[in-house]
C-alpha cells in the first residue's frame, strides 16, 4: 500500500504542503482549490486547518476571561494544540503516503509568538517535532489588502487576531493593522531562511492557482495516485 518514494525533506512517503500568510491573503481559498485539483488527478489528499481543538479553545477562553494568559502560556497552549493536530491528523496520513495540505503550520506560531515577544529560538525548539514541509507557499499581501478583505468578509475581527492583548491600540482596527504589520515583517524575514515559495497574492484567484499547480508538478513526479496503487497490487 505505501508508496516507495519517501520525501527527501522529511523521509515520509507522503508530501507535506503548507500555506502561510496573513488573514485575508487568500491562502485558504487557494489551498482548497489545489486540494480539489489533486483529488481530481487521483491523489490521496488530506486537508488540515489551524483551528483550535475543544480542549485548548476552552482553556484559552477561560484564561482570557480571568486575564491569566501571558505570551508564554499562550504560545505553549497553541503548541499543545498543534502537537495534538500533528500527532493525530498530519503524521498518520503523511506516513500513509497522502498529500497533506496544511492551511497554516508551525510558521504561524513562529510569527505570532515572535510578535508577542517570545524568544524565536525557543519557539522553534518547542516546535521541532514538526518536520520541514516539502513546500511552504507564503501568500504575500499588503496589510491594507488583508484588512480590506477581512472587512469585506464581514467576519468580526477577534481580540487575538487584532493582537489586542499586546496593548498596541484600544481601537480594534488600528490594533489589527499594527499587529498584522508585525506579522508581515516576521513572515518576510523568515522567507529566505525557511525557503518559502513567495506567492504574489494581490493577483486574481485563477492566476495564482495556475501558478501553484505549475509549481507542484515536479514534486508529484513519480508520486503514486490511487489508481497506480491499485494496479501495482
Amino acid at each position: 500500500m505505501i508508496p516507495e518514494t519517501p520525501s527527501p525533506t522529511h523521509g515520509y512517503p507522503g508530501r507535506l504542503l503548507v500555506f502561510e500568510g496573513l488573514d485575508g491573503s487568500g491562502k485558504s481559498t487557494q489551498a482548497r482549490l489545489l486540494g480539489k485539483w489533486l483529488q481530481a488527478r487521483g491523489y490521496r489528499v488530506f486537508f488540515t486547518e489551524w483551528n483550535s481543538s475543544e480542549l485548548v479553545s476552552q482553556t484559552i477562553r477561560r484564561g482570557k476571561k480571568k486575564g491569566l494568559l501571558t505570551p508564554t502560556t499562550f504560545s505553549l497552549l497553541h503548541a499543545t494544540d498543534f502537537a495534538d493536530r500533528f500527532e493525530r491528523h498530519i503524521l498518520p496520513p503523511l506516513r500513509a503516503g497522502y498529500v497533506v495540505i496544511c492551511d497554516r503550520y508551525a510558521y504561524t506560531a513562529f510569527v505570532r509568538d515572535a510578535a508577542r515577544g517570545c524568544d524565536p529560538e525557543w519557539v522553534r525548539t518547542i516546535y521541532s517535532f514538526a518536520p520541514k514541509p516539502d513546500r511552504v507557499f507564503y501568500f504575500q499581501v499588503g496589510v491594507a489588502v488583508s484588512l480590506q478583505r477581512k472587512i469585506a468578509s464581514r467576519l468580526k475581527i477577534s481580540y487575538y487576531e487584532a493582537g489586542m492583548d499586546l496593548g498596541l491600540s484600544d481601537d480594534v482596527r488600528e490594533s489589527y493593522e499594527k499587529f498584522q504589520n508585525r506579522l508581515k515583517r516576521e513572515y518576510d524575514a523568515m522567507a529566505p531562511r525557511d525557503e518559502f515559495v513567495i506567492v504574489n497574492a494581490n493577483r486574481p484567484v485563477e492566476v495564482v492557482q495556475a501558478e501553484l499547480r505549475h509549481q507542484l508538478r515536479p514534486l508529484l513526479n513519480n508520486f503514486p495516485t490511487v489508481e497506480t496503487l491499485i494496479h501495482d497490487h
Binding site: 501571558t70 505553549l76 499543545t80 502537537a83 495534538d84 500527532e87 518547542i126
Partner: peptide
Amino acid sequence: TLGAATMALFYAADFADQLEN
C-alpha cells in the same frame, strides 16, 4: 488520548501558568 509531545507541551503550559501567575 494525547500523544507524547502534546502531553509534554500541555504540562509545560500548566507549569508556565503557575510560574507566572
